[in-house]
């Protein structure tokens, strides 16, 4: 049977819908020892700012039931080192490059977006307005619809590549945020970022994470993510990249049926470094089993 796993988002074609969730895969270097990056639809990089960010104090990660909390705080080397080192590394592979962009102010974001504009190897930009672990910027832009509208509109003026707004689940109504981003010109949405959580070590009577709160990810959050992808997909016309606890191809198919055009693997990379390629293979098996010729036929196929 002839099968086509190709998908298109904002005019950019991807060989398959499987991507990496920002922050869980670096710039692919570490996991290239385990998986063939050529097999992936795209590598979505760890967030990069205009200057290096040191991130938060440790402990930065903690395990919770069926998932984890993290408060890395967007440690990154800054855009200049990133362009010199990470982009040339990723260019060796036949996979799309999506760069996740973070900042404390609108100007910070603009600076990174403009520098990336000169790099044709970068197919899309994912704008991080939803990291729950940094005090300034990031989530401050992603929890109010008017703030999200403004930053999206501003970045669209400067971006040479299509932009994906990465939405926070820590909001009252995800559809309001999705609509605001779309109205401001976003080319696509990705969701969900992590859910703000907390864990207390009762023996030491301390927070498990130095930042006190951390973003929760992992299989335990998947039903919430599927629900939000479904709601957002019905609220907007732009494509959605779904993520949140995907561990298997079955999980990925669920997101696609809910309305996602593509999916990202996040925390499960830490549990099984081969997850991304296993999901790629599993999606193909599903298509074979159910005689699905085009993956696009599955997108939003449950009403």
């Amino acid at each position: 049977m002839k099968m086509n796993t190709q998908i298109t988002i904002a005019g950019v074609t991807f060989k398959n819908p499987v991507m990496t969730a920002s922050g869980t895969f670096g710039s692919g270097m570490e996991y290239s020892e385990f998986v063939d990056l050529n097999a992936l639809g795209a590598v979505v990089t760890k967030g990069v700012a205009n200057v290096p960010w040191p991130g938060n104090p440790t402990p930065r990660v903690a395990e919770v039931y069926g998932g984890m909390l993290n408060a890395i705080g967007l440690q990154n080397p800054g855009i200049d080192v990133f362009l010199e080192r990470d982009i040339p590394f990723l260019k060796q592979y036949d996979t799309r490059i999506i760069v996740n962009v973070c900042g404390k102010t609108v100007e910070d974001y603009v600076e990174v977006v403009e520098k990336l504009g000169d790099e044709p190897a970068v197919s899309m930009l994912e704008i991080n307005v939803s990291c729950p672990n940094v005090k300034e910027g990031a989530i401050a832009f992603g929890q109010k619809a008017d703030a999200l509208f403004k930053i999206t509109e501003e970045l669209k003026k400067h971006a040479r590549q299509p932009i994906i707004m990465k939405l926070s689940p820590n909001v009252t109504d995800i559809t309001e945020m999705a609509r605001a981003a779309e109205a401001a010109g976003a080319d696509a949405l990705s969701l969900i970022n992590t859910l703000t959580g907390m864990k207390i070590d009762i023996h030491r009577r301390r927070f498990a994470i130095a930042n006190k709160t951390g973003g929760m990810s992992g299989p335990a959050i998947k039903p919430i993510a599927v629900r939000m992808v479904y709601q957002a997909a019905h609220a907007v016309k732009i494509p959605i990249i779904g993520m949140g606890g995907i561990a298997t191809a079955e999980d990925a198919i669920e997101f696609i049926l809910a309305g996602a055009s593509a999916v990202s693997i996040g925390a499960m990379n830490f549990v099984n470094p081969y997850t991304t390629v296993e999901v790629v293979r599993g999606i193909e098996e599903y298509m074979r089993q159910y005689h699905v010729e085009n993956l696009t036929d599955l997108i939003g196929a449950v009403e």
Partner: peptide, 26 residues
């Protein structure tokens, strides 16, 4: 330190260094 990936990707298990580190340049 508490780790998540164990392979250098997640940046969960860092220690402060005197010199600037080669990965994140912090």
């Amino acid at each position: 330190e508490h780790m998540a990936c164990g392979v250098g990707a997640c940046l969960g298990c860092v220690v402060k260094t005197g010199e600037i580190d080669h990965h994140s340049h912090v």
